[in-house]
Design a protein around this nucleic acid. Structure first.
Lengths: 143, 143
DNA sequence: CTACATGCAAATAATTTGCATTAGC
DNA sequence: GCTAATGCAAATTATTTGCATGTAG
């Protein structure tokens, strides 16, 4: 699982597996969807093993480098992250009225993107698609 | 053109068309691709009519609200913008090695997205697709 | 035991805001 | 003239960093 991947990543870099780093990792993987660093920090403050804001940010950067977490950046202030391991790829629809985030996946979309990459001789590794608009509920509400 | 649209937008809101706002607008529309607020500010400092950082940021927010400019946010630090008027919709491929940005457009992709929206009862208005990976040149270079 | 990690507080950086002054309409 | 905009500098917010101390390997 993810802690094994992270451990291997750290060893490979000659870094140490500290309890603070584990606390951050565990917290992240206990969260379902998206999260912000501050949110993460507050949760950790309330948990068994604590970590400072500095460590949260430092660990977050390591996790992104290791590929376990992805920065999907799209908040007005600050970054938004999401863990990628064990959480299959998907894209997002964001309601500009209520802010709700709908995750979706489309195989055709993935394939089309591969074709486009080929056409442009681009070796795509990851992508982010974000569709903004109004969700079902807000469409009704506003008229 | 864009200045007419912006003027109308301002009037509709009971706001004023100042020379600073025009300077920001002109500067943006004299730029081909993407830009960052600081870049914009520096260009304006060197132009005829100047504007402070505060005004640049304030105007930028108005332009986003008016729909003339879009925040495509994805720099490690700060936001990246792009003007949308007269610059038809397209998506981006970003090389994670050299940072080059390739713009592309695919009609099939647009249609597929419409279909997905329909399926999810989502009224999509705009979208951003960003594919990250290695560009042709960097693929050769690194091997 | 040694190098790397931690926490803290100070430093950076991007952006926003309060306020006195200036300028569209 | 009235209301909104400007510039400045101070305030906020998010994130990083230097340094003395702690700790994993």
């Amino acid at each position: 699982m993810e802690s094994k991947i992270f451990r291997d990543f750290l060893i490979q870099r000659g870094l140490k597996l500290t309890k603070e780093r584990m606390a951050v990792l565990n917290q992240i993987f206990s969260i379902h969807g998206h999260f912000e660093p501050e949110h993460l920090y507050l949760n950790i403050r309330n948990s068994e093993i604590k970590a400072s804001r500095a460590s949260v940010y430092r660990t977050l950067n390591l996790l992104v480098e290791s590929g376990l977490v992805e920065r999907i950046s799209r908040s007005d202030k600050g970054n938004v992250y999401e863990h990628t391991y064990g959480h299959s790829h998907h894209d997002h629809m964001i309601c500009t009225t209520c802010g709700v985030v709908i995750e979706f996946f489309s195989e055709s979309l993935e394939e089309l993107q591969k074709m486009i990459c080929t056409e442009y001789h681009f070796a795509g590794t990851t992508h982010t698609l974000e569709i903004r608009g109004k969700c079902r509920t807000c469409q009704k509400r506003k008229k």
